[in-house]
Amino acid sequence: MIEKLALLGFGDGGWGLALLQGAGITISIALATLPFGLALGLVVALGKRSENVVLRWLATGYTTVFRGVPELLTLYIIYFGIQILLQRLWEWLGLPGSFSMPPFVAGMVALGVVLSAFSSEVWVGALNSIQKGQREAAAALGLSKAQAFRLVVMPQLVRVALPGLGNNWMVLLKETSLVSVITLPDIMFITTRANVATKEPFLFFGAAMLIYLFFSLVSAWGLGRLEARTNRGYAAFGGATR
């Protein structure tokens, strides 16, 4: 048993360091995807609420597609497909040499696109919860449209959207496991390699599970804190948060 645990250690023949690096990749791809996916999601959400029919139609089609196609498939299509498209664009532009999209970027784009489709639903819900009167009041106070959005709408939006977006984050964290199929050396990639090298699948996949669980628990705790923080001042008005 002890010698088995040494496989997870940092000594000679131990996979500890590789696993830690894998965990680093997992967390960095999740963190890199988050702002991109959330911002794109907000844009899509604004598109869905737009008065322009074409925009509305495009935004709805976008979410339908990326919510309906398996993430694994999206990843393959983006990793290989976008690469080939951009390569053609590169040649058309007459640029020297060749184009190559790093797997990290491909993974980030694929996960970000999926995240934006799901988070746009959350953003729409949150946008709907803000009464029209607020904007009118902001206008009456002499705020410009942009100012009203930034100073009045956005802070409330974040508070209302936070639980939903937090959920999106938890899903994203787990979905990063799929990037191992496009050779990004994340936790899953390292553990599958460790599995075939050592014939100890239970040990390694078990260890991978615990790392993911640790990330999930830390995230849940952090999100709880964040929610409590953004809800300051609301509890006083008779528990408006539930």
Binding site: L89, L93, P96, G97, S98, S100, V105
Partner: peptide, 21 residues
């Protein structure tokens, strides 16, 4: 347009293996 697209591709952190032909 080409210039813009080229700039965007470069900014996107893309690595082009240059002049290998």
């Amino acid at each position: 347009v080409r210039f813009l697209a080229a700039a965007a591709l470069t900014v996107a952190g893309v690595t082009g293996a240059l002049a290998q032909a």
